Computed example of a mutant assay.
Amino acid sequence: MSNPVLHAFFLGRAFAEVVGEKVEESLTNAVSDLGKFDAEQRENLRQFIEEVQTRAERDVTQGNTSTTTTSTTDNGSPTDLQETIDDLRAEIARMKAELKNYRDQNA
């Protein structure tokens, strides 16, 4: 190439094409990673909800059983009730922490 202006033009055009391709590739990867992250978080949330529902159902079943058995004993009910309240408070604290982590990750 004997003409430096023509050489600079083709060099600039090639540079712009390469930069455009790299930006497009980076943007595509970023959007893909964001989609994967969103899908993972939705799956984690679904599993969390499923676990909470399973535990709630289990506790309801155990609660019905323990109510039946403790109604026959005079001193058993208050202790079981307090233990249930403490367990519920601990579960609420765990759920709050999990929700805070989820919100912090999506912020």
Score class of each variant (00 low, 15 high):
1 M>P: 03
1 M>R: 03
1 M>I: 11
1 M>Q: 04
2 S>C: 03
2 S>W: 03
2 S>Q: 08
2 S>G: 02
2 S>R: 02
4 P>H: 15
5 V>S: 04
7 H>Y: 05
8 A>E: 03
8 A>S: 00
10 F>G: 08
11 L>I: 10
11 L>F: 15
11 L>C: 14
12 G>N: 06
15 F>E: 06
16 A>W: 15
16 A>K: 14
16 A>G: 10
17 E>D: 05
18 V>H: 02
18 V>G: 00
19 V>I: 03
22 K>F: 10
23 V>N: 00
23 V>W: 00
24 E>M: 13
25 E>I: 08
25 E>N: 09
26 S>N: 12
26 S>W: 04
27 L>R: 07
29 N>M: 13
30 A>Q: 03
30 A>M: 13
30 A>K: 02
30 A>N: 04
31 V>A: 04
31 V>P: 02
32 S>P: 04
33 D>Y: 05
34 L>D: 15
34 L>W: 14
35 G>Q: 13
36 K>P: 01
37 F>N: 04
37 F>Q: 11
38 D>C: 10
39 A>K: 13
40 E>V: 11
40 E>H: 10
40 E>D: 07
41 Q>K: 09
42 R>F: 15
42 R>K: 14
43 E>W: 10
43 E>H: 05
45 L>F: 08
45 L>H: 07
46 R>I: 07
46 R>G: 05
47 Q>P: 00
47 Q>S: 13
48 F>I: 01
49 I>N: 01
49 I>H: 03
52 V>A: 15
55 R>Y: 12
56 A>Y: 14
57 E>K: 11
57 E>D: 15
58 R>M: 07
58 R>L: 09
58 R>C: 14
60 V>N: 07
60 V>K: 13
61 T>Y: 06
62 Q>L: 12
62 Q>Y: 10
64 N>I: 11
68 T>N: 03
68 T>S: 12
69 T>L: 05
70 T>C: 11
71 S>P: 00
72 T>W: 12
74 D>F: 09
76 G>E: 12
76 G>D: 14
79 T>N: 00
80 D>P: 00
81 L>Y: 01
82 Q>N: 03
82 Q>I: 15
82 Q>W: 10
83 E>C: 02
83 E>T: 02
83 E>I: 04
84 T>I: 14
84 T>Q: 03
85 I>F: 01
85 I>N: 00
87 D>Q: 07
87 D>N: 14
88 L>V: 09
88 L>N: 01
88 L>P: 00
88 L>S: 01
92 I>L: 11
93 A>E: 06
93 A>V: 13
93 A>I: 01
94 R>T: 04
94 R>H: 03
95 M>P: 00
95 M>C: 13
96 K>G: 04
97 A>R: 09
97 A>F: 05
98 E>C: 11
99 L>F: 10
100 K>R: 11
100 K>G: 06
101 N>T: 13
101 N>G: 11
102 Y>R: 15
102 Y>M: 11
104 D>E: 12
104 D>H: 00
105 Q>T: 06
105 Q>G: 01
106 N>M: 06
107 A>S: 05
107 A>V: 01
107 A>C: 02
